[in-house]
Design a protein around this nucleic acid. Structure first.
Lengths: 134, 134, 134, 134
DNA sequence: GTGGTCTAGACCACG
DNA sequence: GTGGTCTAGACCACA
């Protein structure tokens, strides 16, 4: 499914949260799909079941999954009520990162180019055109 | 100068690192400017001097300040040798954030607009220049 | 394991850094091997655990060990990204030392001989190999 | 005469010791030559006279200069009695540095080449190297 | 039980 | 008076 870095400073349960969050965001795990049980995932990753349990509880708190007692844990459709606060936090992070990149010498043009490479471009409506050849 | 959240999960010394880093990046603290002494800042924030000391030491490791024993701590000019690895980390964070914003429903156009608002415009008026008039 | 000079001008934690660095460099402590716990080493050397902690943190910054909270501290494989600046510093030290040895009357031939004694010989017999028989 | 780095972690008086030691070793300051007075040097470098005084006392202790009360400080000819202990210390440093360079990936051949570049080659009696001109 | 953080308070080197 | 080091002892998060 994925790998953990046991040497990382990040606690294992936080790594788990990030990995599973990524799978949900990138639609690998689809809405209402069942996640592995705590025991399954724990034995597969050879970590303590308590650690997986903690990650699942955190994901539930973040609004990415829901738990049905006796049934298991399932992917939750994106919940609008969580969005505003979360988006505000993300925008703050975004601002912090951009400022630090500028401070370290990355040019505004380069930052803009990097971000446009990350954004999907399947629509025609883009205001400032990126150079077509390259 | 700024405030700490003593209830936060982030250790106090890391909050200090982030806050001071921000002040340096945003040019509130200028190169070679003297930071508050360890004891001053500790008493102002009502934390232990060792905690401030630890934050200052970390900022020194990160290349943001330098310490002159017996004199004080001072803002360091941006050190290019620290940049490459740091920029790579920032780009990874950037990617993660953009993906999560897209997942939460922010349109690519809106993200692009937000980021352009964060970047300095080289087209015309420069807003954050040092004000020439008194 | 080793001894400290409590009367030395060098801070205890820096002596610790040097000693452990030496053990790693000379392959006494091998990659991914577990170091003594903070408390073990502190009690063995009769110094404060915080002092050992500080040394371990510094070794982590220098890229010699990595720390897994709740598990322990472990020897890190040599990290190439730290090398360039460090090698430059070592070459400067080398130059300083050679010049002072020459000043004090050591002949170039003798210096050359001493250094060749320190370098591994790729000509024939290898003395410090791991013993092939168990 | 020379410059100090006021931002360095090295105490100013130690920087002074190193700089003057270098001048003596490289024969810029010759035996029995008079050094600047404490006040002169202090005002030239804009440091505290106590700092210069401390450096001179340290140089005297190291055997590089001698002090004549009421007259000044003078360069001392190399004193053999200081050599043995000092040379032992230098050889230890040498060993430490070479081992660390090897650990960081520098090949024995490269180390040998670097050191030979530092050694004078004005004599013909060199055992293992090809010195082209005499 | 591990590393990590924090406090309180002492002492030292430096300039 | 500054930063730096060290001790003693407490509490917390993680696995």
């Amino acid at each position: 499914m994925f790998e953990l870095d046991l040497r990382s400073r990040l606690p294992i349960y936080e790594q788990l949260v990030e990995k599973i969050k990524d799978l949900i965001i990138n639609n690998v795990l689809k809405p209402d799909e069942k996640l592995p049980t705590v025991r399954e995932l724990a034995s597969e990753l050879t970590v303590n079941p308590n650690t997986v349990q903690k990650a699942y509880r955190e994901l539930e708190h973040l609004g990415f999954i829901y738990s049905v007692p006796g049934k298991g844990n399932f992917v939750r459709e994106v919940a609008p009520e969580h969005n505003t606060a979360r988006l505000q936090a993300l925008e703050n992070e975004l601002s912090r990162i951009i400022n630090e990149m500028l401070y370290l010498g990355t040019s505004p043009e380069e930052i803009d180019a990097q971000i446009n490479a990350l954004l999907p471009k399947d629509k025609g409506g883009n205001s400032n055109d990126s150079s077509p050849e390259g």
